[in-house]
């Protein structure tokens, strides 16, 4: 993944992942693949891309998602009950990139899953399949800076960014983490697990400032964002907003008919973020 652009200082800027931030603030929606089934997931991704999403996080379901609140835990279980496997998620991404059964999706796509899903598949085999399918980045919430060696080098060899997370408790760790960031930095807005929150009280501005001192990789804020107003507020303080649970709630409510209501929310959020 050597850059053709000689003026690009950091590999983070040159990756396809970071192109999500090239037009300004980025809006990043999340879904769990296979919830309620893979056809609906494909339709959701296509509609989100059309609705203005700049990057989409695709969750590969895991039986015991320890960083998730109840909403996304349930989505993982629904997806697994529907027979979703890692191989079927690779096929989904492949079809989305190739334009099989619908328009091709060109925006960056990131996998969000847990260490064991990648490790047990074989990290090399997983990254090769992800590259082949057309994945740009991987987010592993249970792999902190100290353990990323298992995954980082192999992902890099396949042109995939292993996205680093920072949290409200990271403090002096932020500089160290950001200095090695690939793609973008995922700023966890609040303590606790994923899920919608009425208010985000963390000083996001200071966290973002610390990241920017160490890298020119963009920073996107996630966890707890449920309204277009909150998304705009977080994007104003950073380079983008990530929304999961608020979208997954609509999918839980509407099942196979979720494309309309979910893309409506994504459209409103993307607009709020892009209008900044």
């Amino acid at each position: 993944m050597t850059s053709q652009n000689p003026v690009t200082a950091s590999s983070a800027r040159s990756s396809h992942t970071a192109s999500a931030f090239a037009r300004g603030k980025a809006f990043i929606p999340f879904i769990t693949c296979g919830d309620p089934d893979l056809q609906t997931s494909a339709a959701l991704v296509r509609s989100f891309a059309q609705a203005g999403a700049d990057l989409i996080e695709l969750g590969i379901p895991f039986s015991d998602p320890t960083a998730e609140g109840v909403t996304i835990q349930d989505a993982n279980l629904r997806a697994l009950s529907a027979g979703t496997t890692t191989d079927k998620v690779f096929e989904l991404v492949h079809d989305l990139r190739e334009g099989t059964n619908g328009p091709a999706v060109d925006i960056p796509l990131a996998f969000m899953t847990y260490a064991n899903v990648v490790f047990s598949y074989g990290t090399e085999r997983f990254c090769a399949a992800a590259e082949e399918a057309g994945i740009d980045a991987i987010i592993l919430p249970d792999v902190p800076f100290e353990e990323k060696g298992d995954f980082d080098a192999i992902a890099r060899q396949h042109g995939i960014d292993l996205v680093s997370l920072i949290a409200p408790t990271s403090n002096e760790r932020i500089r160290m983490i950001a200095a090695e960031a690939a793609g973008f930095v995922y700023c966890v807005s609040s303590l606790g697990v994923t899920g919608t929150r009425d208010a985000i009280t963390t000083d996001i501005g200071s966290m973002v400032e610390l990241v920017r001192e160490a890298t020119d990789a963009p920073v996107a804020v996630g966890f707890g964002i449920s309204t277009p107003e909150q998304a705009a507020q977080m994007a104003r303080l950073s380079d983008g907003a990530i929304v999961g649970s608020a979208i997954v709630k609509l999918i839980a409510e509407h099942g196979r008919d979720a494309v309309g209501p979910a893309s409506e929310l994504v459209c409103a959020m993307a607009q709020a973020v892009h209008d900044i």
Partner: peptide, 21 residues
């Protein structure tokens, strides 16, 4: 020092908990 027992062990936890451990 890294909390390994052979290849096993380590600290595979969310960043939020790293400073706690």
């Amino acid at each position: 020092p890294q909390g390994r027992f052979g290849v096993h062990g380590g600290q595979y936890i969310p960043e939020t908990l790293m400073n706690a451990v």
